[in-house]
């Protein structure tokens, strides 16, 4: 009962998010609108935390398995991959390191500098 109600709320937010993605002509995914909607709901207490917490934590903790099908999907585009697999791997691996390091160092330096006051 408790879980069904929580799941229902999460699904309602997801549905509203899909509607937003359909109506707003930007290449922004429904899941991002949904995340923002849910966050606003929680901050304004329109959605009390206890009404989504259990199902929400379950979904977040088990998110990994949802990435298995898209990852396996790589084998379905082997032919298209042939034309540009080297730049794709360089972009996928090398740039990822670069972005991680730069974002981390810049954030860390800014936190030290601003000391958190604002």
């Amino acid at each position: 009962m408790k879980y069904l109600k929580q799941l229902a709320i999460v699904l309602i937010v997801s549905l509203l998010a899909e509607l937003m993605a359909y109506l707003i002509p930007l290449p922004v995914a429904a899941s991002v609108y949904g995340l923002v909607l849910m966050l606003i709901g929680l901050i304004t207490h329109i959605i009390p935390l206890r009404l989504v917490e259990d199902v929400g934590d379950f979904l977040v903790e088990n998110m990994g398995i949802m990435f298995v099908p898209p990852t396996v999907g790589i084998i379905a585009c082997v032919d298209e991959l042939k034309q540009m697999w080297i730049p794709l791997l360089v972009a996928g691996i090398f740039t990822t390191f670069l972005i991680m390091i730069i974002t981390g160092l810049v954030t860390q330096a800014l936190i030290k500098k601003t000391g958190g006051e604002s």
């Binding site: 937010v13 917490e53 998110m63």
Partner: peptide
Amino acid sequence: TPATVCLAI
């Protein structure tokens, strides 16, 4: 999608 929405929690 619902799981990403719940990242808000």
